[in-house]
Design a protein around this nucleic acid. Structure first.
Length: 598
RNA sequence: GGCCCCGUGGUGUAGCGGUUUAACACACUGCCCUGUCAAGGCAGAGAUCGCCGGUUCGAAUCCGGUCGGGGUCGCCA
């Protein structure tokens, strides 16, 4: 080793020892004679003093050194002179008096500050990610990520799970996300696909009798990235045999709770995790991934709206839409400008508009509310009684602002739920140290795809219907509830899972509703269906997203902040500059001809 | 594919039609300085304002396009 101790490990107990350190120059303070260097390595920072009188050669070397140079220093650990201790450093009681110094490698001036946590354009950080990763915020994220994954592995190992790898080169399956394709040299014109998840593989492992499987699995989806989505992401994929929902949920709850309590003890979780059904979640929060750190629950106002003369409401309802709203506490005093801002917010998220009702005044009960206290663009269409009823439903009081959206159910719920989260954020209602995990259960098995006029799988095609719902599969697909569950936390979907079909006949009926022809099923799912014929055990599982879990544990709003080498929103890797063109010979070998765009 | 925001020395920002030889902080270079720890002092170098085109007597500043980044809707079983 080029060092005898890590920079961050030097303590008062080492005083008198001669140590060799190696690391990066974090900061240099040159007093002309005395030179101080804060030397940094993966373990921390320690101050090194270069004295020209006692060590002229080392001092001369230190004069030349600049930020981020890599140096090796040998010297004695000494107690700092009284009054010069630095309480901000764990190593602040001591320093190393350099006797010798060697420059192991100089550095160019970095393109941004490595030694301070200043904001830097993210593209530049990604181009020089290896420098960005030297900074504490990124470093801590990567270290925590390691601990979380290690904890998960140990936790599952103790419970009899086996970690089993599955192929990265697999087969494209229809539906779901767009696949990343890999051309085959040995089979011209044929392609592997990168797995969107090891779904079928883990089910086959259950048929193989492993009973408890998990994998820290990389998953690939060729769709547009987002703040919480990357083209490739990591899942804790796990599957168990001979279980029902309760077994999977109990395990997941125990795991997540333990991870938080052991690794991020300053964050709190709600125990036990609240549970709500999909229908409940949609009704109360307009989304299947509600932020439960605060209330502001939604109320259906359709019946009240129907009794008004407000044409906007009536026409929406005539077309089968809904009218729904929630309260923004204390926001009655919002200015015209602020309210307009909220209107813009929902319009940019698919709503036609926003009706707000401000209940002006301070204190007093709803009963005493006067017409003069109601401020709303729809005021002249609403009777005082109707306003009061709307307030009662949304639990709004004097001083609150009721926000209402009318429109088709899907887009209205979406915009309203985004507005709810936005208001929660603006009003600071979400405790940043609370991780409000919850289970959302009983998802529909099928979802109507209006454009394509067909039924899609809401979750995926392999989930089992709830008991008693099999008979509805063909007659009323939309009414079939699946044995499907999600874990959500603070408005993010963290995990998704289900009890799977282990009977071929049932699985084939579901494929049929999804519109697959016999040939398509045979081509894509034959391996799974055939396996079900050979004694497939009842089984189910769940797949938490590790990146999103890390966002929540580390308190980041961006998935790139918890990934060592992420891609931009256009799927570009600024460090390697991938994707890139390849040699013509490589294309020839793969029998690929590139058609120029346009 | 749609919508919104951003793009000025190395970094972060200011300037938003002429008074700008584009300002400030930090970084950088040189000199001074024996106890600093975001060390300090003095001096200096460094950007034609992402790119293309237009409007104008005059554009970093206005307009259009384009490229790149971010956010979002679509998409993401």
């Amino acid at each position: 080793m080029l060092k005898s101790i890590a920079c961050g490990d030097v303590r008062a107990s080492n005083i008198g020892q001669t140590v060799t350190l190696a690391g990066w120059v974090h900061r240099r303070r040159d007093h002309g004679n005395l030179v101080f260097i804060d030397l940094r390595d993966s373990g921390g920072i320690v101050q090194v003093v270069f004295n020209p009188e006692t060590a002229p050669d080392a001092h001369a070397a230190a004069e030349d050194v600049r930020n981020e140079w890599v140096i090796q220093v040998t010297g004695e650990v000494t107690k700092r002179p009284p009054g010069t201790e630095n309480p901000n450093l764990p190593t602040g009681d001591i320093e190393v008096a350099a006797a010798g110094a060697v420059v192991l490698n100089p550095s160019k001036t970095p393109p941004f500050y490595v030694n301070e946590q200043s904001d830097v354009e993210e593209l530049l950080r990604l181009q020089f990610r290896y420098l960005d990763l030297r900074r504490p915020a990124m470093r801590e994220a990567i270290v925590l990520r390691h601990r979380v994954v290690k904890y998960i592995r140990d936790f599952l190992d103790r419970r009899g799970f086996l970690e089993i790898e599955t192929p990265i080169l697999i087969k494209s399956t229809p539906e779901g996300a767009r696949d990343y394709l890999v051309p085959s040299r040995l089979h011209p014109g044929r392609f592997y696909a990168l797995p969107q998840s090891p779904q079928q593989l883990k089910q086959l492992l259950m048929v193989a009798g492993f009973e408890r499987y998990f994998q820290i699995a990389r998953c690939f989806r060729d769709e547009d990235p987002r703040a919480d989505r990357q083209p490739e992401h990591t899942q804790l994929d796990l599957e168990m045999s001979f279980v029902d929902e309760e077994d999977v949920l109990a395990l997941a709850e125990e795991l997540f709770t333990a991870v938080v309590e052991e690794l991020v003890p300053d964050k709190a979780v709600i125990k036990p995790f609240p549970r709500l059904t999909y229908a409940e979640s949609m009704a109360r929060f307009g989304t299947d991934k509600p932020d439960l750190r605060f209330g502001l629950e939604m109320a259906d106002l359709s019946d009240i709206a129907a009794s008004t003369d407000f044409q906007v409401f009536r026409s929406v309802l005539e077309r089968g839409g809904i009218v729904k709203g929630f309260r923004a506490p204390g926001c009655a005093s919002y200015s015209r400008r602020e309210v307009d801002g909220l209107v813009e917010f929902v319009k940019s998220r698919g709503a036609q508009g926003l009706v707000s009702i401000a209940l002006m005044g301070e204190g007093g009960s709803l009963e005493e509310l006067g017409q003069d206290q109601v401020r709303s663009s729809a005021a002249r269409f609403l009777s005082l009684d109707q306003v009061k009823e709307i307030a009662r439903r949304t639990e709004a009081g004097i001083g609150d602002l009721v926000l209402i959206i009318a429109g088709p159910s899907k887009s209205t719920n979406l915009a309203l739920s985004l507005l709810r989260h936005e208001m929660g954020r603006r009003l600071g209602l979400g405790d940043p140290n609370l991780l409000a995990f919850a289970f959302v259960t009983d998802f529909p098995l099928f979802e109507r795809n209006e454009e394509e006029e067909r039924w899609d799988a809401m979750h995926h095609a392999f989930s089992m219907p709830k008991e008693g719902h099999e008979k509805l599969i063909e007659s009323d697909p939309g009414a079939v509830v699946g044995r499907i569950y999600d874990i959500v936390c603070n408005g993010e979907e963290l995990a998704s899972g289900s009890i799977r079909n282990h009977k071929r006949e049932l699985q084939e009926r579901i494929f049929k509703v999804l519109g697959y022809t016999h040939d398509e099923v045979d081509a894509r799912f034959n391996q799974l269906l055939t396996a079900l014929d050979y004694g497939a055990p009842p089984h189910g599982g769940i797949a938490p997203g590790i990146d999103r879990l890390m966002m929540i544990l580390y308190g980041r709003e961006n998935i790139r902040d918890v990934i060592a080498f992420p891609k931009t929103q256009s799927g570009f890797d600024p460090l390697f500059e991938a994707p890139a063109e390849v040699e013509q010979s490589q294309l020839d070998e793969l029998h690929i001809r590139v058609v120029p765009e346009g």
